[in-house]
Amino acid sequence: MITVIIPTYNRGNKLLGAVESVLNQTYKDIELLVVDDGSTDNTESIIKNIQDSRVKYIWQENKGACVARNTGIKAAKGKYIAFNDSDDVWMEDKLEKELDIIEKYNADVVFCKITQKLGNKYYELPRKLKEGFQALPVKNLQGIGTQSLLFKREVLTEFKFDEKIPRFQELDLLLRISESKRFTFYFLNESLVNYEVGIDSISKSGKKLEIACEHIEKSRKNFKKMYPEMSREWAGIFYTLAEENITEEKLDLCLRYIRDAYHYETDRIRLVVKKMKILAKIMKLILF
C-alpha cells in the first residue's frame, strides 16, 4: 500500500482537484491522509463529505506544512509514502509508474518531472537530468518537488522534514538523504505532476529565503564548493530581490540583498554584470 499525504491550510477552494487526482490513480491500493494544519475555512467539511474509505482527515494546530507532513509520516500505514500539495494535480498513472521503478530496480526514492505553470508559460523540470539512478540528484534549486517523490517507508523513518526552516524543506531533506549515501535515487524522465506557482513566491518572502539559505549552508562545510550551481542560483535570486527593492524607502533592504548575493556568488560574469547594473541604478536614485 502507498500512503499519500496532503498537508493543507485554508485551501478548501482548491483542495478537491489535488485529492481527486490521488483517488483517481490507476494504482488503487492507497490511503490518503489529508493533514489539516489548523484551517479556518471549510476544509474539514469538504474532506469529510468525500465518499471514499481510503481518505482520512487529520487536524492539527497551525504549525506549518512540514510539521503536517511529519504528522502524516507518523500516521502512515503504507509500505511506500508519497506527497501531494493541496493545489497540485497528478497524472493518473503517476504512482503506478513510480512504483514500477521501485519494484523493478529496487530504488529507495523515485522522482519524476513536474510541469510548472508560471504565468502563461509552462516549463518541465528538472531540465538536465537523464533517466536512471542519480548519485546526487539535488545540485540546484529547480525541479525536484515534494509532490514528485515516492519513498520507501524506511527512508522517511530515518529522515524527516526539518520543521524549523521556512523554505526549501524538500531540498534540505533530499540533501540529507543523498549525503548519507545509504539510499538510491532514480529519476523517471516523464512529467507526471502539474505544479502551479502560488502567491507565496520568493519575491514576497526574502527573509524566509535568507533563513533557509543560511540554515542549509551552515550545516555543511565548503558549501559553495560542494554545490556551486545552487550557490549561483541563490546569488541570482538575491540580486533579483535587490533589484525589486530599489526605492528610497527600501534602500537598506536592497543593499542587504546585494550583500547576500555577493556572499553566495561564485565566478560567473553574468551575475557580476547584474550586480554592477543594480549598483548603477542605486547611484542614479541617490544622485538624481
Rank of each mutant, 00 (worst) to 15 (best):
F133V: 07
V197R: 10
K250L: 12
T157M: 06
P228D: 15
K139Y: 09
L149V: 07
T266H: 03
E244A: 13
D267V: 01
R182K: 15
K221P: 00
S205K: 15
E210H: 05
E179T: 05
A212R: 08
S191M: 03
D200T: 08
K218R: 10
K218E: 11
D260P: 00
I177G: 09
A235T: 06
I165W: 04
Y195K: 06
N140T: 06
K204M: 07
Y264S: 00
K130Q: 11
Y227D: 12
R232A: 10
N189E: 15
Y257P: 00
I144A: 01
Y262G: 00
M226I: 09
Y227Q: 07
V273S: 12
I211P: 00
D162R: 11
E214M: 10
K207Q: 07
G143N: 04
F187E: 01
K164Y: 09
F161S: 09
F161Q: 10
E249D: 14
G206M: 10
I269T: 12
G132C: 04
K225S: 08
L141H: 06
L174M: 14
I199S: 14
K225E: 14
L150S: 07
I199F: 12
L171M: 15
F223D: 01
A242M: 06
Y257W: 04
C254R: 05
F238A: 09
E265I: 00
I202Q: 11
K208D: 15
K139H: 06
S201I: 10
R167L: 11
D162C: 09
D267R: 10
S180H: 14
Y186T: 08
L175E: 04
L253D: 05
A242Q: 08
S231E: 11
F133E: 04
A261C: 00
I165E: 06
Y262S: 09
L271C: 03
E243P: 02
R256G: 05
N140Y: 04
S203M: 09
D200V: 01
E248Q: 11
K204E: 13
E170F: 01
S148P: 12
T247L: 03
K130P: 02
L141R: 02
V272Y: 14
E214C: 06
E265K: 04
L188D: 11
A242D: 01
T240E: 05
L209V: 08
A135M: 04
A261K: 00
L136A: 08
V193E: 06
E179M: 14
S205I: 06
L136T: 06
Y227I: 05
K164P: 00
M230N: 13
R268T: 05
I269L: 15
L149D: 03
R270I: 12
F133T: 08
P228Q: 13
Y195L: 11
S219R: 09
G132Q: 02
I199A: 11
I269W: 12
A235M: 02
K250I: 04
S178Q: 15
K160R: 14
D162W: 02
I144Q: 01
G143L: 02
K164V: 07
D172I: 01
L253T: 13
I258Q: 01
T146C: 13
R232G: 03
R232S: 13
K204F: 12
E243S: 10
